[in-house]
Design a protein around this nucleic acid. Structure first.
Lengths: 125, 125, 125, 125
DNA sequence: GTGGTCTAGACCACA
DNA sequence: GTGGTCTAGACCACA
């Protein structure tokens, strides 16, 4: 189930993309599994169909899913896409770490914060 | 010297704020030191004066700098003045870590990446 | 055997049409030979019967096949029946060439690429 | 100047993308040159701003341009992007050639068609 | 002014 | 029903 946080600064279409990626990483969605249709996910989440469409299309550009007109959208098989995504996530993490360090965050504090994030994950899933 | 990355998604005014905080953390700027004038910093960085003005105003709101009419802007003394900024940086780091974890980054890999970031800092500055 | 590429942007009904024309051009299907029934071809390829029906109807409109009620569909005799199809293919090829040229593909490189395509065909069939 | 062919089956946003790429390849647009604003290009071509936005965003995804909120959109410097685009164009050309060959287009006819395309280009530009 | 996001709603090809 | 394109129009952050 994909939850939209309407208060978040993160664009809705990005939340949708992350939601799909999460379901993939959790194994809920397997390669070649069909995704909910654009309209179905839209009404399910309360998001406008155009916004869901945008999310799906960006996922397709990234090679995470593929869409066939008249048939639906499906999860791609390729592991390549995953690696690209992971690398992007690592890049963003490194950049955030560099900025935080520049703002005066000590190494110890940074490591502690990271540990806390993984701790909270362990509990929720 | 403050460098603006024009291709970055980080707003220019935020880059300016971070730049000044960096100079502070590096000790280049000491409490009560005078900052460059809005115009000077603008022409130096190629940024629109309005944008520099906005950065200075936000720094002042946060208590990191203070301005004296007719004289200019100066660095505040308070050591904990930039707490909000630090908190924002931590927030961003935590979010990036959560996303990376969701994309499959292991805790060990995350810690290693963080260590590498601090390592590289130690060398360059 | 007709293969459907489900990931292709080319509509399934068009792939079916091309597949039948290919069998004709290869001599696998001779004039007045009977084509597989809509149902047979559908289950064989995994395509929806409606879609096979559409392909057969368009082939009939173009005079490439003819159907006899109660008996089935047969390949037409006319050698130039598929002229429209050929023209469409030429049109697509010309458009692709124009676009490639615009993206900087030299004439020599284009001719070489074309030669390579025909070369590879000579070997495989 | 970018012309939209409203009769064409090619989506408007793709025509816009091709138009920008053409201007780049012709040297009309140089690296770091500013593109017309979304709204300007929209009113100039009679296209809806959203559609122009879509074209710009896809060009940014492909690394052809970069956009900075509040400042505008600019042509990227990288030659990498060009190569990717060229390769895609070559792929499409090869696929079109294969299909045409399968439809019975002789090698001689294909080469002639290609020559004609380059001939017509020589005249118009 | 400049790009970016989102909704509402229409229309099309395809299955 | 399913994805894809497009218009119209609103609203936001940023420069």
């Amino acid at each position: 189930m994909i939850q939209i946080d309407w208060q978040s600064r993160v664009p809705v279409y990005e939340q949708l993309m992350q939601g799909i990626l999460r379901l993939k990483n959790l194994g809920v969605l397997a390669p070649d599994d069909q995704l909910p249709s654009v309209r179905a996910l839209a009404s399910q989440t309360g998001v406008n169909p155009n916004t869901v469409q945008k999310a799906y299309q960006m996922l397709e550009t990234k090679g995470i899913i593929y869409s066939v007109t008249g048939r639906g959208s499906f999860l791609s098989a390729g592991a390549d896409a995953d690696e690209t995504i992971l690398n992007e996530a690592k890049e963003r993490l490194a950049r955030a770490a560099r900025e935080a360090a520049q703002m005066g965050l000590s190494k110890a504090a940074a490591l502690e914060l990271l540990a806390a994030v993984y701790e909270e994950r362990g509990k929720s899933e």
